[in-house]
Design a protein around this nucleic acid. Sequence first.
DNA 1: CCTTTTCATGTACATATGTACACAAAACCT
DNA 2: AGGTTTTGTGTACATATGTACATGAAAAGG
Lengths: 202, 202
Amino acid sequence: MTTTESEQSRTTGRTGRGQSGSRKDPGRRERIARAAITVVAERGIEKLTHRAVAAAAGVPLGSTTYHFATLDDLLAVALRQAAQDNVAELREYAGEMNAAGDLASVLTDLVLRYLGPERRRTVVEHELYVAALHRPALRAASTEWDAALRDLFTSYTDEVSGKMLAAVFCGLLWQGIVREPLPDRNEIETIFRRALGSHAVH
Amino acid sequence: MTTTESEQSRTTGRTGRGQSGSRKDPGRRERIARAAITVVAERGIEKLTHRAVAAAAGVPLGSTTYHFATLDDLLAVALRQAAQDNVAELREYAGEMNAAGDLASVLTDLVLRYLGPERRRTVVEHELYVAALHRPALRAASTEWDAALRDLFTSYTDEVSGKMLAAVFCGLLWQGIVREPLPDRNEIETIFRRALGSHAVH
DNA sequence: CCTTTTCATGTACATATGTACACAAAACCT
DNA sequence: AGGTTTTGTGTACATATGTACATGAAAAGG
């Protein structure tokens, strides 16, 4: 049976107009896109549906299909936005890498930051990456993130070391994102020191 | 409208009994699981459906639901199997790491192997990893893969270097799996050499 | 004020999909 | 052989979901 009576109203919890009051709500599109990011972060890409996004954004179902013709559009825009936010955050944080002289320590902070407070962002980024494996439209966003990471690391050391550190960074994130207890700070820092050529334990 | 007339027969392309002839087909379960891996490798986890697997395995729809009560069961078994195959392949390949004295070169071969001939396996592994982010049932398989990788690398160097190399390895795979042209062999080898402390370019 | 255009929403519907289940066919037991 | 159990299939159905579209409400233009 098809969902006859007002199932959408139940979904969004509101029957009337949008809470922003006035018609013509600018930024609605972006709000929907951000809601999509939230859905992906919390439930994964396979749960990204028009209805789930609508509920998360607090807008009616029709609104999501109005602003984004197809689901793939919505996914592409949302994940590209997530990637850009991510890079922006990275660049901002980069300033502190200058201040603190100890590169290994700063990189460790960065890893722990991405695995802890910024975990949501990291999860979305990984979902994006894998989704891109089967959706050419998302490839660009993925490679952009890679490039930004490599550029950042390269600018603080040299070409080869930058690439190497980017790989270590990616690997540590990749391994750490599934582990239940956050990895030990000391362990990560030790790994970075070894990668940087210093064989001192601490 | 529900799919009235024999849509399953069209899907599998066969109306009668299984092509193996005799009833009681041992290994059927495993064949279905492998078909599931194929589906994930070629179309991604979100396209993993009972019907897609049935078509890929050449068995009727009922067979998939008979051997695997729920889709999550199928997913869990299939991906765990993929992970185990992966680790087995890794261990087998490990023998050659002894023969060839040059660690960086062997690691480079391994990366290129996983990105080239074994790309399917690598893709599935990454899908598994991300899927595990939102499915606790898959966590074990993911962490097992990590552990196997670290153990392998550790056994050829030392504790810290092993972890570091595992991270580099993961990172390079991660970055290389989306790039359209396979990364340059020389570039990868150079990165490994830098990570291993040798600053010689070649 | 009236018309037209743009923006937004609620609803309907076809389809894909997970899953239950009645039935059948072989294997097994005695 | 006759009955019982295991194994395997085809089919039906409820639900979730993408998407189209008729309708309405506000803005814009005159």
